[in-house]
Write a protein that binds this DNA or RNA. Structure first.
Lengths: 110, 110
DNA sequence: TTTTATACATAGATTTCTTATGTATAAAGT
DNA sequence: ACTTTATACATAAGAAATCTATGTATAAAA
């Protein structure tokens, strides 16, 4: 499983999409969920994930709270009201983008 | 048609994919082909395209030649032998990535 | 005792893109 | 006649997003 550089540009949308389908998630959980859903193809690095989460929080798209579980800190993220709207827009854009990419992958030799 | 930031990271692969299906293309032609295939959804800017083409050329993945057509310069790019191999790898990675993205887009609320 | 897993975070470097700018020809619109 | 749009290349400065490396800390497994 190589860290996939294709994720560049879509990580934020992936985070918003996951949080649209889970009432709350913590950082490590997101990395594991992406790994699981991509069948090991996509690895989200911490150096990419945490700054992305902090940025979304700073923009007011995510709300947070912390919990101690098994003596370890967890910082939970959830979509704010504003975040729910932006998530819909961004996910919709990603869907269109995927359709476009598929059109480009279906080419036949000219 | 907004310049799509989702393209980040996949532009190089798109170029290689297009050149896998056209024996040669010039820069402006690539921008138009992407626009056409994406139904206007994806606009490749010149500031992104030309540096990407030059990099691929410097890496030995693309060969070039120029032609004057209608009194205007065209610089044609085509895959080198090495480029053909790399194109296959990169396109295969992109296909896997798209599959992963679809898996993430199909989520249901948990 | 060491490695792996869990869980957060940041700093510096790198890559990649956007925006703006520049040159030049030709066709189309006003 | 003049301006805009299309064609066709290119680069520079800046912004944005990522990777790699590093750091702290607990717990379980090897």
């Amino acid at each position: 499983m190589a860290t996939n550089q294709l994720i560049k540009g879509s990580l934020t949308t992936i985070i918003l999409q996951l949080l649209s389908h889970h009432s709350q998630m913590y950082g490590y959980e997101i990395t594991q969920k992406v790994k699981e859903l991509s069948l090991g193809e996509i690895k989200v690095t911490e150096g990419a994930l945490y700054p992305a989460l902090h940025k979304l929080e700073a923009e007011g798209l995510l709300d947070t709270y912390t919990e101690i579980v098994d003596n370890r800190l967890r910082k939970y993220y959830k979509l704010s009201q504003k975040g729910k709207g932006v998530a819909k827009e961004k996910v919709s854009e990603l869907e269109k983008f995927i359709v476009s990419m598929q059109a480009m992958l279906k080419l036949k030799m000219v």
